[in-house]
Structure formats: structure tokens, C-alpha cells
Amino acid sequence: NNDALSPAIRRLLAEHNLDASAIKGTGVGGRLTREDVEKWLAKA
């Protein structure tokens, strides 16, 4: 759900042209964290 994304995470996803639904969030309530996105980028 994009409503649950912080502005910083939205920007990070946009910079790398990523789809938030492709990344499993580990934050509160399954929210994406910066670490989630960075780990996903490291694997890609």
C-alpha cells in the first residue's frame, strides 16, 4: 500500500524505478524501511 510509504522511501523507490509491491517490508505492520530497499537493491 503506497499510503504507508514514507516520503524518503517513495523517493528511494522512484530513484531506482522500483515497485514497492516487489519488496517485502519488515517494518511495523509490514512497512518498507530503507534497509529493506537497500537489501533488495544489493540482491538485484
Rank of each mutant, 00 (worst) to 15 (best):
N17E: 06
A8K: 05
K24Q: 13
R10H: 10
N2T: 12
L5A: 04
K43E: 15
L41N: 01
A4E: 14
I9V: 12
K39Q: 13
I9T: 05
W40M: 10
R10V: 15
D36F: 01
G30W: 01
A8V: 08
I9D: 04
S21G: 11
H16T: 02
H16R: 04
N17V: 04
R31H: 09
G29F: 05
L32S: 00
T33P: 00
L41E: 01
A14E: 11
K43M: 14
A42E: 11
A22V: 12
R34A: 12
G30S: 04
E35R: 11
V37K: 00
A8Y: 12
G27F: 03
K24M: 11
T26H: 04
E15L: 15
R34P: 08
L5R: 03
R31D: 06
A44E: 11
L12Y: 08
N17I: 04
L18Q: 04
I23F: 05
I23H: 01
P7H: 11
E15W: 14
D19S: 09
G30R: 03
S21F: 08
V28R: 08
I9S: 01
G25V: 03
N2C: 11
V37E: 00
A20N: 03
L13C: 02
G29V: 02
A20D: 05
A22L: 15
L5H: 06
L41R: 01
L18D: 01
N1W: 10
G29S: 06
A14Q: 12
A14I: 07
T26I: 04
G27I: 02
D36P: 00
L12W: 11
A22G: 06
G25W: 02
I9N: 01
V28A: 12
S21M: 09
A8T: 09
D19L: 08
K24S: 10
D36M: 02
A22M: 15
L12N: 01
V37R: 00
I23Q: 02
R34S: 08
S6F: 04
E15R: 11
A44C: 08
A8I: 08
P7F: 05
N17L: 06
K39G: 09
N1P: 13
L12M: 07
N17R: 08
A20Q: 07
V37S: 00
H16G: 02
E35S: 10
V37W: 03
V28S: 10
G25I: 03
D19I: 09
T33C: 01
V37G: 01
V28N: 09
S21L: 09
L41T: 02
D3N: 09
D36V: 01
A4F: 13
N2L: 13
K24P: 15
S21D: 11
S6L: 07
D36I: 01
K24N: 09
K43Y: 13
K43G: 13
L5D: 06
G30V: 02
G25A: 08
L5W: 06
L32E: 00
A42M: 10
L41S: 02
D36N: 01
E38N: 07
K43S: 14
G25K: 03
E35P: 06
E15K: 14
T33L: 08
K39N: 15
G29T: 04
A42W: 08
I23C: 04
V28F: 09
T33R: 05
D19R: 05
E35M: 08
K39I: 11
L32R: 02
L32K: 01
G27P: 01
N1Q: 13
N2D: 14
R31Y: 07
E35T: 08
R10G: 06
N17F: 07
E15A: 14
T33M: 05
P7L: 12
G29W: 03
P7T: 09
G27Y: 02
K43L: 14
G25R: 03
T26E: 03
N2M: 13
G29H: 07
P7K: 09
D19Y: 04
R34L: 15
T26V: 05
K39E: 14
K39L: 14
L13E: 00
G27T: 03
L32T: 04
G30F: 02
K39D: 12
L18K: 03
G30A: 04
I9E: 03
A20E: 07
S21K: 11
D3L: 09
D19H: 09
E35L: 10
A44Y: 15
W40F: 15
K24L: 13
N2Y: 05
W40I: 11
G29R: 05
L32M: 05
D19K: 08
K43V: 13
D3T: 11
L12K: 03
H16L: 11
L5F: 06
L12I: 07
L18S: 04
N1E: 14
D3F: 03
T33Y: 00
R11G: 10
D36A: 01
P7A: 15
N1A: 14
A44V: 13
I9M: 06
L41V: 10
R10S: 07
G27M: 02
N17Y: 06
A8W: 11
G29Y: 05
A14W: 11
N2G: 13
D19V: 08
L41Y: 07
S6K: 04
T26W: 03
I9K: 00
D3G: 10
E38A: 08
K24I: 14
E15M: 15
I23Y: 02
L18F: 08
A4R: 12
L13D: 00
A20K: 04
A4L: 13
L32A: 04
L18I: 15
R10M: 10
V28I: 12
G25Q: 02
H16Q: 03
L12F: 08
S6A: 08
A42Q: 12
I9P: 00
G29L: 06
G25S: 03
D19Q: 09
T26G: 03
N2W: 05
G30P: 01
R11T: 12
S6I: 05
K43N: 12
N2F: 07
V28G: 06
V37H: 00
E38M: 13
A44F: 15
W40N: 03
R31M: 12
E35K: 08
G25H: 05
D36T: 00
I23V: 06
T26Q: 04
L12H: 07
A4P: 12
D19A: 07
E15F: 14
E15T: 09
N1K: 06
A8E: 15
L13I: 06
R34T: 12
A42K: 10
A22H: 10
K24H: 10
S21R: 10
A8N: 05
K39V: 10
L13P: 00
P7N: 10
H16M: 09
G25D: 02
L13R: 00
G25Y: 01
P7Q: 12
P7Y: 06
T33E: 04
R10W: 07
V37I: 14
A4W: 15
L12V: 05
A14H: 08
L18M: 06
L18W: 06
R10Y: 08
A14D: 09
S21W: 08
N2P: 13
R31A: 15
L32N: 00
A44M: 14
G27Q: 02
P7E: 15
K39Y: 12
N17T: 05
I9Y: 04
L41K: 01
P7R: 09
S21P: 06
G29D: 14
S21Y: 06
A20R: 06
R11Q: 15
S6G: 10
W40L: 13
N17K: 10
D19M: 07
G27V: 02
T26P: 02
K43Q: 15
K39T: 11
R31T: 14
L13T: 00
D36G: 00
R10F: 06
R11S: 11
A4I: 13
A20M: 06
G30M: 03
G30Q: 04
D19N: 10
R10T: 09
G30E: 04
G30I: 01
A42R: 10
A4M: 13
A42S: 11
W40P: 00
I23R: 01
T33Q: 04
K24V: 14
I23D: 00
G30Y: 01
R31Q: 12
L32G: 00
G27E: 03
A22D: 13
A14T: 07
E35H: 09
G30N: 05
I9W: 06
A42C: 04
D19W: 05
R11N: 15
R31N: 09
L41Q: 01
A8F: 09
E38R: 08
A8H: 10
H16A: 06
E15H: 12
V37T: 01
A22P: 03
V37F: 03
W40R: 05
D3A: 11
K43D: 14
N17G: 15
H16N: 07
N17W: 05
L32D: 00
H16E: 01
I23A: 03
A22Y: 09
W40Q: 07
R34W: 14
K24D: 07
A4D: 15
I23N: 00
R31I: 12
G25E: 01
T33F: 00
A4Y: 14
G27S: 03
L12G: 00
R10K: 13
A20T: 06
D3K: 07
L12D: 02
W40C: 02
A22N: 09
V37L: 07
H16K: 04
E35I: 08
R11P: 04
H16P: 00
L18E: 02
A44N: 13
R11D: 15
L32W: 05
G29E: 07
